[in-house]
Design a protein around this nucleic acid. Structure first.
Lengths: 192, 192, 192, 192
DNA sequence: TATGAATGAGCATTCATTCAT
DNA sequence: CATGAATGAATGCTCATTCAT
């Protein structure tokens, strides 16, 4: 019970941090801001996270697993891939990048300052994983005759760049037709 | 002569600011860092820029004109566009985005925190201009039979997103084969 | 208990500020000086006062109420005024102005730079109140035959000027005979 | 000729300093402000005054001589003093204090912070001279039967205090009836 | 656990002063 | 002489972090 309560506060703080780091960057965001956004006293922040850097690290690295899960689920279904399934997968990626606004802003913030944040390493690893996954898809797709001849590596680089850049194009909520535009364009990167 | 000397220092400071804002963001970058990087005393920074925010604003907005120039030169040659010319143009864009590492990082930093920085407005305008330019190319290309049927708007959104995201993929110097990968992928966004 | 402790520190800071602003003026007095004089760290000053200007404003305006109280108590007893009571009143004023050295220096500092400090307004109001009070005394005194014919307004202006100027005459502690000199002279302003 | 030109600039700077020191105090007044007010470049200020402190010292001490002259002229005529002459003298003092607004504000600024400014000494000396002069008048006046019995010392202290305090009562230009009020009240301090 | 008062390192900025032109 | 670019000491203020309650 107490544990639940604690976890609840931890999560409030976590999400407050994620939101504010995303909106204002690391230095501009104060522990006080986070505490206020989370609805706790700022002393409480230090009860759950050793310091500001630790909270930031949590914000950058903890969501990665869910991300990994979500992005890579399809890996197993790859044997039975069809054109429609591939289109769905790409659509899911786009939707996912559109939804996770705060997290993606934080990620881009870190990637944009690679010498500044140690968390960069973890993100580099994830990018490698993701590109490998895409390369696997392209190869399988070509083998099955679903995709035209392509360089799997080139597609993987281009596709990840595209997904990241997409997120930079929106201030406000992404509108549906823009999402569709991105889905269509993304397919072109696969030669479709 | 004295004027030249002044402008020289102003430029040293400008470039130091651009580099450090790109690498460490706005808040983490101190006037002292900038002065040291520029090889002047920190008081001198205030001789040329009213305050830190003004220097940042200069770093974000001043290069835009050169950018505009560089990106849009081709506009006039559009009448006589050929497939090869279009490929060259895309190649130039990629090369340009690869070269201007510091400036693009700063741009992305601002775009990533749109509520924080007023400079966002100017960047939004530029993005609109750039997309219009791309749409013009796509229409002309389709008219001339160079490009397959496409939605000019979709291409323009996708292409800009791609260019922006590309820049997020590199910490170190872009290696040639990656640049080529990006060029090829970029052409796919035009249906090529 | 904790509340008391807080108020105690606030008061220490307040008195340190009052003393140092009186002795060295606003700009010359640093937050550090005040903190040292108050026996707290300088960060603590900002726990109790939003900034230097707010502390100064407090030093200028907060004592006014006590002042008002002290100076005007006699108002009610005015019905039964006698020559002796009036002499006592004037004596009290003199003593009061002699005692409140720091506060009066701060007041004069503000009055001397009326365009610089917004606090001037509040002091102008108080001066008006005080002169009204004196005019009332003079009128009552003349009605009762205690005071010779006088212009109440002239007396009120002269008396306030005299009280203010008096405070400018001392660096060190006012010696008794000087205090007496002032009391006698003050009475002359009332025609006594 | 060159000398004249120089002296003219020196005076411009001097009066600019006097005005600004009077209005904003020592620390708040910048060399730049003074230069702008004087219509010269700020470097020029250092051509005529070694540094800011030296200019301030000049502003405090140099006018004293004229002051001394003006205030004490009457000394010689004291043999043939009459009631009318004494009234005229007091009137002149009041007028003089009313006119020299800037200088008197500076004086009071220094007197109000006696531990801060070395110039205080010179002012103390002048105050002594002035009080001696007043005491002389009172004695002579009593001898000649012009003035009622008074303590010359008390009168001198009260009168100087009154003159100083008077100057604190005005923000704007003194209006005539206030000046008269002060003249009348001043005479009361002499027992008139 | 939760709180927030106390602390002081760190930073932007101001401004007197120097000195080359 | 006049100028103003260059300098860096000094200062107000912010904010992460500690710790007593």
């Amino acid at each position: 019970m107490a544990k639940l309560k604690s976890n609840q506060k931890r999560e409030q703080i976590f999400h407050a941090g994620l939101k504010l780091f995303a909106e204002n960057g690391y230095s501009k965001t104060t522990i006080n801001d986070i505490a206020r956004e989370a609805g706790v006293s700022f002393g409480t922040v230090f009860t759950y996270y050793e310091n500001k850097a630790a909270l930031f690290r949590a914000c950058v690295t903890e969501p990665l697993d869910e991300f990994r899960q979500y992005m890579l689920t399809a890996n197993e279904e790859l044997e039975s891939i069809t054109l429609q399934k591939l289109k769905n997968l790409v659509g899911q990626h786009i939707d996912f990048f559109m939804e996770k606004e705060h997290y993606l802003r934080v990620i881009q913030y870190v990637i944009g300052q690679p010498y500044r944040f140690d968390e960069m390493e973890v993100l580099d690893e994830f990018a490698d994983e993701f590109r490998s996954f895409i390369q696997h898809i392209v190869k399988t797709g070509m083998d099955k005759g679903i995709l035209p001849a392509s360089s799997p590596e080139e597609v993987s680089y281009g596709y990840l760049a595209f997904l990241m850049g997409m997120r930079l194009s929106f201030t406000d909520q992404a509108r549906a037709h823009q999402t569709n535009a991105f889905k269509n364009q993304a397919l072109r990167l696969f030669g479709l």
